[in-house]
Design a binder for these strands. Structure first.
Lengths: 338, 338
DNA sequence: TCAGAAAATGTTATCGCTAACATGAACATG
DNA sequence: CATGTTCATGTTAGCGATAACATTTTCTGA
C-alpha cells in the first residue's frame, strides 16, 4: 500500500505516520540500539510506506561533513587518467565516500585557483586535482583552508601533497636495461612538448645517459601517436649507429616497429625497442613489446587516502612517486655484432 | 590582512564583519542588483577577509535541489565507458551541474535497486546507470520517485529511458558494406558471451544475413582480446570459402590481421576485414582498418540531457539508439576471382 | 517641503536532520 | 513501598542559506 509520493518525505512525515517523534525515526535510520524492537518495526513500516529517503542536505548540514571528495580532471580520455579515476573511485567506495567529478573544459583558462573555487561550492571535504598538463598558476596556488588538497602531478608543490608515477625512474630503468644488453647508446623519441610526463621521461633519459658519461644523440620529437612514431622510426632506421630505441610511449613504439619492418630491419635482432605504458595487447613481432607499466590505480588510491587521511597516512605535506615496473618481453636483445 | 580561519565561515559571520544583515550578504553572493554598490563592496571585502565560501548543504537544503546528477558505473576501465563519462561530464559542465560518481565494486552483487538506494543518499537530482553487463534485476527495477533515472543500455526498460549505441545497425552496415563489394558471405567473430553489446552485434549480424537469405557460417567465439582474434583468424585462414570477416571489435580484427599475415594471406586482396570501435591508431597493412566508430560522447550527452530535461527533451520514456559511422579504410575489397 | 513611490536593507520562518538535554516509564533494591 | 537506576522516547535548538514579508532609507515631483 505504498502511496505514490511526488513530494519529498521527511523524517517528520515518517514520525507523524508512525506516531513517534522525529528523533526516534532518526534513531531508527541510524540504527541506534536504544529503540524498542516493536517501535523500530513500526517506524520501518512507515518509512517503507511513505518511501522515505534521508536527505543528504539535511544530514550534512548538521554533520558539517559531506563524506565526499572532489576530483578535478583536465581531460578524461586517456588510459592513465582512467585508471587513476578507477583507483580513486574504488578507494572511495571502500571508505564509504562519494566522488564529485568536475571537468575543466578544454577551452577554459586552466587555473587551479579557479577550479578550486568552483569545486568548493560543491559538497566536498577535500579535493584531488589530476593534472596532466601545465597550468599557469601551479606554484602560486594555495589550497582553500579546511579543504585538504592533493595534486596528481610529478612536480613538487610548496603546500599541497603530490603523487604521480615515477617518470624519471622509468627512464633510468629503460636506459639501464638497454645498456646492460651491450648497446653503446640509446635513442629517444619524445612526447609532445607540453606534456609534463613526457618532459620528465626526457629529463630522466638525459640524466641516465649523463650519469654514465654517454653523450645523448639527437632526440626525435613525437606527439604520442603511432604515426609520429612511424616517422621517427623511419629516420632512425636510416641511422646505422642506432641500435637501441626508447620510445616514450607504446603507441610510438608501435609506429617505430612498423617503420623498422618497412625498412627491412628486424626487432630485436637489428634494433632493440622499449616503450612505456604497457597499453598494447598484441605486438607485431609476436614476442611482444618490452615496456614499462605504471600503477596508475595505485596513484589514485594514494591520492584518495592522503586527502581523507585514512590508512594512517602521515599528516604533513608529502611528494610521492610510485615506481613503474619494467615488463621484459621480446624487443630487447644485444646489438648486432659489426 | 586575511585571517587564517580554520572554522567554516557562514553568511552570518560575514554579515557581522560587514555590519549588515545576513540577507544582504546573501544578496551580494547571488549577485542581486538591489544592493548599493558601496554596501556590496563592503560585503565583498568582508567575504575576502574571512575567506567565506557558500555552504553547499545550506544552499541545497533550502533550494530542495542539488544541481548534481549521480552516475553509477560498473567498471570504468574501458574506452567506451570513458567517452560516455566524458560526454556526461562535459554536458554537466555546460549546464552548471556536478557529477557524483559511484562505482559498483566488481565483487558486489550487481543490483540496480541496491545501487539506486545507495545513490539516493547522495546529493543527486537524478541518476544515470551505465550498464555494460547484465544485472539480475534489470526488468524489475523501479526508479525512485522524484529521481529521474536514465539507463545506458541497449535493452529497452519498462519505466526508465534508455540510450546506447546502435549495435544492430552497426552489424547491418558492416554486412551490407561487405556484400556490396561482391562477397558471397561474411564470417563473424563474436565477443564474450556475457557482453550485451557483443550479443547485439551478433544478433544484428544474423539478422542482416537472414534478411538477405544468406545462411550464416559457423560463428567463432572470441573474448575481445587480440589473442582470441589471432586464434579465430588462424582458423579462418585455413577456410578457402572465407573471403570476408567481421570481427566484432578492433582488437580481435588486429589479431585476425596478424594471423592472416602469418598464414601468407593478404588483406584486402585475399580477405576483407572489418572491425568495430575505431580504437586502433596505426594498422599493420598501412592503409588502416575499416571499422565502425560509435559516438559514445553523444550517448553520454543524451543521457545527461534526458535526465535533467534540458535541451527541450521530450518528457516521457524514450529508447534511443545512437547510430555509429562506418569508417572506410583499406581492409575491404572485392573477393579474389577464382 | 512633504507625501508617496521606489530602492535598499532587515526580520522571520523554514528547509531536514541530529546532538544535547529533558522527561517519562519500567524496573531493581533495600 | 519509597527511591534510585536504567532504558525508551520526546523537546529544543541550531547547522547555513534564502523566500517572503516588514521596515527603513532615498529619491521624485508638485
Amino acid at each position: 500500500m505504498a502511496r505514490s509520493q511526488s513530494q519529498t518525505v521527511s523524517l517528520a512525515d515518517v514520525a507523524d505516520a508512525a506516531g513517534v517523534s522525529a528523533q526516534t525515526v532518526s534513531r531508527v535510520v541510524r540504527g541506534s540500539d536504544s529503540v524498542r524492537p516493536e517501535t523500530r518495526d513500526k517506524v520501518r513500516a512507515a518509512m517503507d510506506d511513505l518511501g522515505y529517503r534521508p536527505s543528504f542536505a539535511g544530514r550534512s548540514l548538521k554533520a558539517g561533513r559531506y563524506s565526499s571528495i572532489g576530483l578535478v580532471m583536465l581531460n578524461i580520455t586517456d588510459t592513465g587518467n582512467m585508471l587513476r579515476l578507477e583507483g580513486i573511485t574504488s578507494a572511495a567506495a571502500a571508505e564509504d565516500h562519494a566522488i564529485t567529478l568536475m571537468e575543466m573544459a578544454p577551452g577554459e583558462t586552466l587555473s587551479l585557483t579557479e577550479a578550486s573555487r568552483r569545486m568548493s561550492a560543491l559538497p566536498v571535504d577535500g579535493m584531488i586535482f589530476n593534472l596532466n598538463r601545465m597550468v599557469p598558476d601551479f606554484r602560486e596556488f594555495k589550497p582553500l583552508p579546511g579543504l585538504d588538497t592533493v595534486i596528481i602531478t610529478m612536480l613538487e608543490h610548496p603546500t599541497c601533497s603530490t603523487v604521480d608515477n615515477d617518470q624519471m625512474g622509468c627512464s633510468e630503468m629503460i636506459v639501464s636495461h638497454l645498456l646492460e644488453h651491450g648497446h653503446a647508446n640509446v635513442h629517444f623519441i619524445s612526447g609532445p612538448e607540453l606534456s609534463i610526463s613526457g618532459a620528465q621521461r626526457e629529463e630522466g633519459y638525459y640524466e641516465a645517459l649523463a650519469s654514465r658519461g654517454i653523450p645523448a644523440p639527437e632526440v626525435l620529437r613525437g606527439d604520442w601517436t603511432a604515426d609520429s612514431g612511424y616517422e621517427a622510426g623511419a629516420r632512425l632506421a636510416a641511422d646505422p649507429t642506432c641500435t637501441a630505441i626508447y620510445a616514450s610511449n607504446d603507441a610510438m613504439a608501435y609506429g617505430v616497429a612498423v617503420a623498422m619492418h618497412d625498412a627491412g630491419k628486424r626487432i630485436p635482432e637489428d634494433v632493440s625497442l622499449v616503450g612505456v605504458d604497457d597499453s598494447l595487447g598484441l605486438f607485431v613481432p609476436h614476442n611482444g613489446l618490452t615496456t614499462v607499466r605504471f600503477d596508475n590505480r595505485q596513484v589514485g588510491l594514494w591520492a584518495f587516502r592522503k586527502v581523507t587521511g585514512t590508512h594512517d597516512m602521515p599528516r604533513g605535506r608529502q611528494h610521492v612517486l610510485i615506481p613503474g615496473t619494467l615488463v621484459k618481453r621480446g624487443t630487447v636483445a644485444a646489438p648486432p655484432s659489426r
